[in-house]
Design a protein around this nucleic acid. Sequence first.
DNA 1: GTCTATAGGCTGATAGAC
DNA 2: GTCTATCAGCCTATAGAC
Lengths: 194, 194
Amino acid sequence: MTEVNKRTQIKNAAAKLFRKKGYRATSMQDIADALGIKAASLYNHIKSKQEILTELLMNIALAFTAGMDDIRNSSLDENSQLEELVNLHVNLTFKYKDSIALITGEWVHLDPEILPQYLEKRNNYEEAFMAILESCQKKKLISESTNLDIALFSILSSLHWLYNWHNKNPDLGKIELAAQLKKILLHGLISPKK
Amino acid sequence: MTEVNKRTQIKNAAAKLFRKKGYRATSMQDIADALGIKAASLYNHIKSKQEILTELLMNIALAFTAGMDDIRNSSLDENSQLEELVNLHVNLTFKYKDSIALITGEWVHLDPEILPQYLEKRNNYEEAFMAILESCQKKKLISESTNLDIALFSILSSLHWLYNWHNKNPDLGKIELAAQLKKILLHGLISPKK
DNA sequence: GTCTATAGGCTGATAGAC
DNA sequence: GTCTATCAGCCTATAGAC
């Protein structure tokens, strides 16, 4: 936190701007202004604007992949694995406050050469998530009549948009946020009828 | 469906492109190409690119506001009102297949003069949604320990991203989709312990 | 590693012929 | 209502002085 690489400063500033205005609406001028230098000076530290986006997004993708591997390699039961996935998303949302916002929409601006690599990681993650849901259904933790495609989409939507909510409520702690999400996402909002 | 205004054709083509590439990455060229005309010809039908975005987004905002008013003015009980809100989102997702995608991110590109009007409608909608959740909690339909801010954010995240899911699974009917969402979002994924 | 200067391309929008 | 021609501005990125 004390001494930070200028390259890192550029990536941090860019992440904040990409998040707020989007990749295309953010100019190199904007990024340079945020750091108090001229736009041309940025190119002493980075190759291109696209390089920044690529590194930000691939970094996030790797973090999710690594977290998922950890969970799948654990001996936790299915229910606990689901809860750990919620923890993973909460933790990464706190850790990558700005750049995590890019996974909901800005990934479309990745160069056609990089895009397939990104999407492959994303698909792998979603398939691994789905495999856990299927285990849950097989063990009757999830009702047989539940459409798992919809369940997966629904949970991931909430978890992907966490960054947005978190930004408005920075006072709520990680632990409480994760606990509430587990309750609401996994165990339902409406109390079961007695 | 037979005879469509050229203005409407432009808005439809723009909605599809804004959704796919984003507002800033979509040029008037792109829109004109989609219609087989020259970019300059667009200006015989519309005032500006911004006008298209404004009309698309305000139209959606009005549809949500009207739907919410209908529900609040009904005599349905709290639980049924929540279910009707899910129906509302599913119906509007089917009706405004492309332009509904803009509410998750592209609204940031609204002109500073229009943006406050849009955000006011959005806030009103979310407050009305919250009021229904509060009624549910007061009647013990929702546990006292549930954080309603998180619950609201979580449900809206899933409902806002419906358009994305729906596009990939066009074969699933409206009724079944709505039924599954009510079960998963409101009554929980994991079966209650016996 | 910063700067100024500038290239080369694309942008939204307008003017005016047909 | 379409077209061609064009403007003025902004964009990413590079070259080269300091």
